[in-house]
């Protein structure tokens, strides 16, 4: 039972770290720090995927959420040079109490729902280990079982094969979708030279040293 104890301790440690990172995302006043905490949280989720033996999902989580989404977020913060966040977007004064109540209600609903799903009668404990269904090949198993076994054992390969054969068109189309989104976003965000000349000088127009260096502001 030694490995079970190790697995449980590992889970608790990762979950605790994830919770801390999530709290840091919500509570930090500096947007860059919040984004870094978010990266930490994504990484903890990837670790949980590894513990569930979903290694491919873990790799995708790191590549897409940390590699793409979080970095895009950082670029967004840096390009707008707004590291301190907007006071108007954080709750203050009279709205704080209703917000707290709503959050607690959501928490209660989730606890109730998950508890019911895990142990409807309340009899079985919250903690438990379940082994993944056996992946050993058996005689006379149906085709779908063999297929599922292959997909679980070798997920990256199966996903890759599907992308390049059956979903080839959807895959290409996703590429077109991203191109179109990029082209359209650039066209929409692009400011005409005439319009820019009429506007008062913005942060970009100021000398570089007078702009606050991004990310060095203490929170």
């Amino acid at each position: 039972m030694g490995e079970v104890v190790v697995a449980r301790i590992l889970f608790l440690a990762i979950a605790a770290l994830g919770l801390l990172a999530a709290l840091g995302t919500v509570l930090s006043r500096n947007l860059v720090h919040a984004a870094l905490h978010l990266v930490g949280f994504f990484f903890c989720v990837a670790c949980l995927f590894v513990m569930l033996e979903a290694e491919f999902l873990a790799a995708v989580q790191v590549l897409i959420y940390i590699g793409a989404v979080a970095i895009l977020l950082m670029f967004g913060i840096m390009l707008t040079r707004n590291t301190r966040g907007d006071d108007a977007t954080s709750l203050s004064g009279p709205w704080r109490l209703p917000g707290l109540v709503a959050g607690l209600c959501l928490f209660g609903a989730l606890v109730f729902g998950i508890n019911n799903a895990v142990s409807p009668s309340g009899a079985s404990p919250w903690a438990g280990e379940a082994a993944r269904p056996s992946l050993v090949e058996r005689e006379g198993e149906p085709a779908w079982a063999a297929e599922r076994r292959r997909a679980v054992e070798d997920m990256g390969r199966v996903v890759g094969e599907e992308f390049l054969t059956r979903y080839a068109m959807a895959f290409e189309l996703a590429g077109l979708l991203l191109t179109a989104a990029l082209v359209g976003a650039v066209a929409l965000a692009h400011r005409d030279e005439v319009g820019a000349a009429e506007l008062p000088p913005t942060v970009e127009a100021l000398p570089a040293d007078s702009a606050e260096p991004v990310g060095t502001a203490a929170s």
Binding site: A170, L176, A180, G184, L188, D192
Partner: peptide, 23 residues
Amino acid sequence: LATLFIALETMTICLYLASAFEK
């Protein structure tokens, strides 16, 4: 269904962008 969804998104995302083009 997967092809359907990606095609649907390609169509609508292009139209979202095009509707905002009259700057």
